[in-house]
Amino acid sequence: MKCDIVLAGVGGQGILSIAAILDAVALKQDFSVKQAEVHGMAQRGGAVQSHLRISDRPIASDLIPQGEAELILSVEPMEALRYLPWLADGGTVVSSASPLVNIPNYPGIEEILATIRRIPRHVLVDSRVLAKEAGNTRAENMVMLGAASPFLPLSTDLLRAEVIAAFASRGDRIAEANGRAFDLGREAAQGARCGPRG
């Protein structure tokens, strides 16, 4: 088993929080993990990505070769498109449908979503609405983690428990909202899943 994931989004959306939760659960399940992330200048509201590799065998490269990612998990729709060269044949794109417009030349959102819909296996989730429904507008990243969970070789129960643990220090209310965000994302993905089921 190997599962190569490109995590994508915009600096400040909590991409590295998703990565930390995936890392922790993969280790609990005794998988090998490598996770390359971007710090520094690139974090300031710019495009951010992390390469996360999970395998039951030793992993060589910290970077995923192009064309080998089973999953692109993006908290922002245009950012999902940026990393398509990494997507494997038959790979899945799980993306938020909610654009984050912080540049003057942000393209038309309909064209972006239409491009994602042309990918045979894709899931689009309105993470902004679901995060609000969960009770924390900052929990879009956990909505997307939930939406990706059906496609991961990881236990859903362990993932959810790790979400709660990750936010425990911010208080019960925030932790529970993030747990709900995870659940809503997962439900949305199961309802919306396209293409052949894996």
Partner: peptide, 11 residues
């Protein structure tokens, strides 16, 4: 890369 993708520099 497919579809419209604009650079998103840090700000």
């Amino acid at each position: 890369v497919e579809g419209p993708v604009a650079p998103r520099p840090p700000v």
